[in-house]
Design a protein around this nucleic acid. Structure first.
Lengths: 230, 230
DNA sequence: TCGCTTTTGGAACAACGTTCCAATAACGAG
DNA sequence: CTCGTTATTGGAACGTTGTTCCAAAAGCGA
């Protein structure tokens, strides 16, 4: 098998490169999920061995971080630029949600390494609108961080929910959780959650995310625009 | 070695149990960090083998989830109950931060499994105050979720930062990141982050978290209390 | 005292990320 | 063109992980 073909041109027709490895990694992650990205799977996809991969990238972390950054940059490139300040922030934030919805593994990756490259891109994209929004300069760092932290929380939950509900249906998965909240013993000690159980089962993730942004933006407007309290 | 001592009373003086295993797991996690919790480390700490552990708990996930839930419940038990609605929510949210600061691995765990037991406790503790805060019933689910997502984002970042800065000092770690933001090429394409670099290096995590809560609470008050817009 | 069930702990397994290395292609200097 | 040097390749091997399996031991009801 795999006859040597002694003296053709190149060992590979397509040269291996960091970019090619990241391409393959994204393809595997999107097609089969986070836990499917192994050096063995990558080796098969690229028709090579782990040694060759390690010659271009230092670790699995580096592959994941680079893959996440590429998708973040790509998603941000598609955001329209002719919007007012608030519309611009909303568009950026929704672009993040759609990215995490299409590539849930990115949500996991962003919590693996602090202030990695992808996070800088997100931080910048959010912060770029704060001046135009009229946010007092002293509040801009906190405002951008708050929006970023909110996105990251959603991204993490969305990723783990998708991971678990990979075979299972999302709605039946949520219905099961909601049923648990309606269990007598649980409901007795968790009355608020009991009241919310039906909404949990029926809610729209994207709408809820958008409503959450409304809260944070309204809060920033109330506290940090035109000199809020202290 | 380990002479059999043929016929004493019990095989172990302290009976193995789920609670004892979780105790040991928390001790290992707090003392040596997330990646130190292995079945081998647990076996040594409990003076047993992996088989005995699996007889009481089904998987490593289950151990981590139970450990996280215990700490969340414990942290919530210490929150004073004689506060007004807003003070109550603030106290709960700050209790979460202090928990994630003392036990960073909890922040990672909460993103591993969706709607796990610990999250229900957090969701309930937040939501319990929303009626008293005057939040319209239609907004309570979204309001509680938004606060929860914000906490989870902070927890995840805090956990990964602590993990990376385990040997390294936190302030020098942040200073290094900030220096990267001041790099000429980076600064040119990321002017907002460039302006924020010094604040990144000097900011207080807990204060920033508290300010973020101010934003979200102000936004909830503006949008969802006494019938906000739409 | 005996039979059955629970509990124990260690051996064994497959899979993972990573390291190492011998073989090969590419390339610059002569 | 030729040759020594470097870059690149891919597979074998390593140590560690979570998990499974099983035989021995302890506890317990009849």
């Amino acid at each position: 098998m795999t006859s040597p073909t002694p003296a053709r041109r190149s060992r590979r027709t397509d040269a291996l490169s960091a970019a090619a490895i990241i391409d393959a990694a994204i393809a595997v992650l999107d097609a089969e999920g986070e836990e499917a990205l192994t050096f063995r799977a990558l080796s098969i996809a690229l028709e090579t061995g782990p040694g060759a991969i390690y010659h271009h990238l230092a670790s699995k972390q580096e592959i994941l971080a680079a893959a996440a950054q590429r998708l973040v940059v790509h998603a941000l490139a598609d955001v329209p630029t002719d919007l007012d300040a608030e519309g611009g922030i909303r568009a950026v934030m929704l672009a993040f949600f759609d990215l995490f919805d299409a590539h849930p593994w990115v949500g996991t990756q962003l919590s693996r390494e602090p202030w990695q490259a992808a996070l800088l891109e997100m931080f910048e994209a959010i912060g770029a609108h704060l001046d135009a929004l009229g946010v007092d300069e002293r509040y801009q760092f906190t405002a951008a961080s708050s929006l970023l932290n909110f996105v990251l929380g959603v991204a993490g939950q969305h990723a783990s929910a998708t991971r678990l509900a990979r075979d299972l249906d999302r709605s039946t998965f949520l219905r099961d959780i909601a049923e648990g909240w309606k269990d007598e013993a649980t409901a007795a000690s968790h009355p608020f959650s009991r009241r919310m159980a039906d909404q949990l089962a029926e809610h729209d993730d994207r709408q809820q995310y958008s409503d959450g942004i409304d809260f944070v933006l309204a809060g920033i407007a109330a506290v940090a625009v035109e000199g809020g309290l202290r």
